[in-house]
Design a protein around this nucleic acid. Structure first.
Length: 193
DNA sequence: GTACCGCTTTTAT
DNA sequence: ATAAAAGCGGTAC
């Protein structure tokens, strides 16, 4: 098998890049945000390419998403398209959780950017926290959003970017069903149940 | 079992 | 504007 064990460096824009780790099957299980210049200085031999966002179903197929509450939150975040945001409470309502709990799971998202936890913001439009970038996480979150043409005044997202909850729900169920079909397909071939 | 924590939200100064 | 409590499942002890 090819260099799947080597992380891949993908340019996000500016000096921001995404380091993507894949397992022996090629499935993405972890990513981290880095400064491209800093990373190239440290390890010049990495493969590098431009980041191109996949559609949600392809992302589900290409990544490892756990079959638990964290996985549910990850699937819900995949239901937010580029250029839009949803609030922690929107996701909470969708999944029967509390907003703070959604934030807790968002902070544990192992695959930032690819699973777009930066598209979840506070109900009042303020950007909210972001732990995928240790210092000034909010700044990076705001930067990622503005790269997606989400307009931000100060640290407040314009209301026009908020998704309709019904559309969020429709997208979520489509992705959720696909995820479970994929799981039983994978289980069905390798073991019986 | 208990105690604490977190990318929030709402209410009360 | 700032402070605090509520709220829940996970994690650690």
């Amino acid at each position: 098998m090819k260099n799947h064990n080597q992380p891949l460096l993908l340019r996000l824009g500016g000096d921001l890049g995404l380091l993507v780790h894949r397992d022996y099957r090629g499935l993405i299980y972890r990513s981290s945000i880095v400064k491209v210049s800093v990373h190239l200085r440290k390890a010049g031999d990495v493969a590098i390419a431009d980041y191109v966002e996949m559609d949600p179903l392809s992302t589900v197929r290409a990544t490892r998403i756990p079959n638990n509450s964290l996985g549910l939150v990850m699937l819900a975040m995949l239901a937010i398209p580029r250029g839009f945001v949803a609030s922690y409470s929107d996701i909470a309502e969708l999944l029967n959780m509390t907003p703070r709990l959604v934030g807790l799971f968002a902070s544990r998202n192992p695959i930032p950017v690819i699973v777009p936890c930066h598209r979840v913001v506070n109900r009042d439009g303020t950007v909210g926290g972001y732990s995928a970038w240790a210092r000034d996480g909010r700044g990076v979150k705001a930067l990622l959003l503005s790269m997606e043409r989400v307009r931000i005044n100060g640290f407040k997202v314009d209301r026009e970017h908020f998704m309709d909850p019904r559309e969020l729900k429709d997208n979520f169920y489509r992705i959720y069903n696909y995820y479970h079909a994929l799981i039983s397909e994978r289980n069905g071939h390798s073991e019986e149940d």
